[in-house]
Amino acid sequence: MSNQPQFFSPLTQKEKIASDNISLELIDFLGKINVRLKEDDVQARDAVEKYLTYSLPKSAGEVTGNNETRVLWLGPNEYLLLSEDEKKDNVINGLREILSDLFCAIIDVSDYYLTMRLSGPKSIEVLTKACPLNFDQYLTKGNSCAQSYISKATVLIDRLSDDLVFDISVRWSFADYLWDWLADSSNEFIFSEK
């Protein structure tokens, strides 16, 4: 046995779903950084925005970003920064450096959450089966996010584009359960020609 740490995802054994109506796939090894700043600390906010080269989300459910990183609104003083897994350490070190004198918390939560991508014309129908969010009011367009729960598992849903593509982040201990639940709920929309 090798002494090198082996990286694996708890969901690698799962069979992904790909059909015209609904698709479900695992987004492995996404860098996730929880950023907390004081709500009224303009200086810290400006420093982060300068580092990222775009502005932080200002209101609930807003998502901002560029080609490299993406920032989701989690609370009035809390954001989730997504990046490629290989680049996350650079981002963390960069943010810690520019915020070294300011009150903040930069936490790597990459391994705490797992992300699965649900897409297709029936995805909202699958979600509404057990998610109390009003999808006419929230997540109505691309680059928006909302936190809620799906069948008892607390989730963060990120709508990537105006097409129906949702990245669902869930605590890894709930991931197996949520995957099975989503797969089971999608079942009725998958038609096989036999």
């Binding site: 609930a60 459910g61 009035p76 109390p132 969010l133 929230y138 729960y149």
Partner: peptide, 17 residues
């Protein structure tokens, strides 16, 4: 359904609170 208006997020279902 019972709706509660969170001062930060807006109107959400009671079961989230």
């Amino acid at each position: 359904m019972f709706i509660i208006n969170c001062p930060y997020c807006g109107e959400r279902d009671q079961t989230e609170f």
